[in-house]
Amino acid sequence: MSKFDGYFLRQLLVLCGFFAFVLVGVFWISKAVSLFDKLISSGQTAMVALEFTALSLPSLIRTVMPMAAFAATVYVTNRLNRESELTVMLATGTSPMRLARPVVLFGLVCAVMLGTITLYLRPASLQRLEARQAEVAGDMTAQLLNDGQFMHPVKGVTVYIGNIGRDGTLSDVYLSDRRRPEQVVTYTSSKAFLARSGEQVALVMVEGTALRMDTKTKLLSTTVFSDFTYDISALARRDEVRARDIRGIPTLELNRARLGGSGADTYSHGDIVEELHERLSWLAISVAVAMVGFSTLMLGTFSRFGLWPQLLGAFALLVAIEGLRGVASATVTENPDLWWLQHMPALSGIAVSVLFLRIAGRPIRPRRRAPELA
């Protein structure tokens, strides 16, 4: 590797890290704010919300990494061209194809990072996130700790809490149990507490009233109590037969399912093949976006207006590659035998980049003038 290659590669890696940090920070903050508000309002602690946002980072990094690689390539190439460093290298006889070597190495480095995230870290984080979401969904205490709104833990049960004190005291509690159509019971109390013993959860109401309505005899009975305990363990939402998210299945297990192993009965063969090759296609995407950004800018010649036409062309190619990936995913899901289509957008981007570099390296021959007539 020459000194220029090392210099070019270092600039690409530094700028890619900077752009990735900025993009991840922007998207993570926008997502974390809504997630913090949702979880904390549901009665969860800040540590649970922080854990959820941390588990979403691998998916977020995988999404922004190609954009960061493309932005770094375009920025560094444009700066080297503006400062005439690429012009000097071309004047010494170095071809654009030779100048693309550090860009290819940069794309391979990004491919290794994306492969680690896509094939291992992201499925593991989604699997853990799915398990934690199931735990939070089954936490009855978190479901009930919402003040100022009517909640329906299960069909036929309505709960309302007017206010929740800092010490956990529930004020102005309303509970309506209509699970038995022949007998409707409504409980109201000025104060209440949640008590937990193992998996048993009880709502202890203090200074309240129980209204019991017999729908057959049309009789209404009223009972005033000083304290009353209502078992709410059966109201907890627990989804025992919840299907695993295919994105959280480990890659090796997904490959075994493609061959007919466990998991093949949960998802169709097309879904499994599409997910597996979608993960593998990210390896070539990082190389493709870097080469597209560099090769498109190499088509430009000196202009006082800069390389804005080439920049717009590179961005258009990036959008086209992403659009083709969406079409390929839908096609592979319908017809798994066409799995190779999943890799065609990235390979097409690399092929177009090689074509652009060959065009940029072709010398411009001046036109011959026609011989003047005597």
Rank of each mutant, 00 (worst) to 15 (best):
R247D: 15
L220K: 06
L283D: 05
I246D: 01
G263L: 08
S233V: 12
L283A: 11
L194W: 04
A202H: 09
V224F: 12
A192Y: 01
R242E: 14
I232Y: 02
I249P: 00
D265H: 07
T215Q: 08
P250C: 10
F193W: 10
E274C: 04
L220H: 09
A195Q: 13
W282V: 06
G198A: 08
G270Q: 02
T222H: 03
S268I: 02
W282P: 00
V224A: 13
L220D: 11
L235W: 12
M205S: 03
E240T: 14
L219P: 00
E253C: 05
A264D: 10
S221Q: 12
I232N: 02
A210Q: 15
D245A: 11
L194K: 00
S281C: 04
V273S: 07
G208M: 04
S226L: 10
A195G: 06
E274A: 09
L259D: 15
L252M: 12
T251E: 02
R258I: 15
R258F: 11
Y267W: 14
T209E: 13
S281P: 03
L219F: 11
L283R: 00
S262P: 15
L252R: 09
E207Q: 14
E253V: 04
E275G: 02
G263S: 13
F193V: 04
S281H: 01
F228R: 06
V273F: 00
L254M: 11
R244F: 03
L280M: 11
R238G: 09
R279E: 06
T223M: 12
D231E: 12
Q200W: 01
S233M: 10
Y267R: 00
L194F: 01
V201M: 13
S281G: 03
I272G: 04
M205R: 01
S233A: 13
L254V: 05
T251N: 04
G208R: 00
A195R: 11
M205W: 04
S221K: 04
A192I: 04
D214S: 07
L252K: 07
V273G: 02
H277G: 02
L235Y: 08
L220G: 09
I246K: 00
E199P: 04
I249S: 01
A236Y: 03
L194H: 02
L211V: 13
W282R: 07
F225M: 10
D245E: 13
R279F: 09
T217F: 03
A202W: 05
S221E: 14
S197C: 03
S221A: 13
V206K: 05
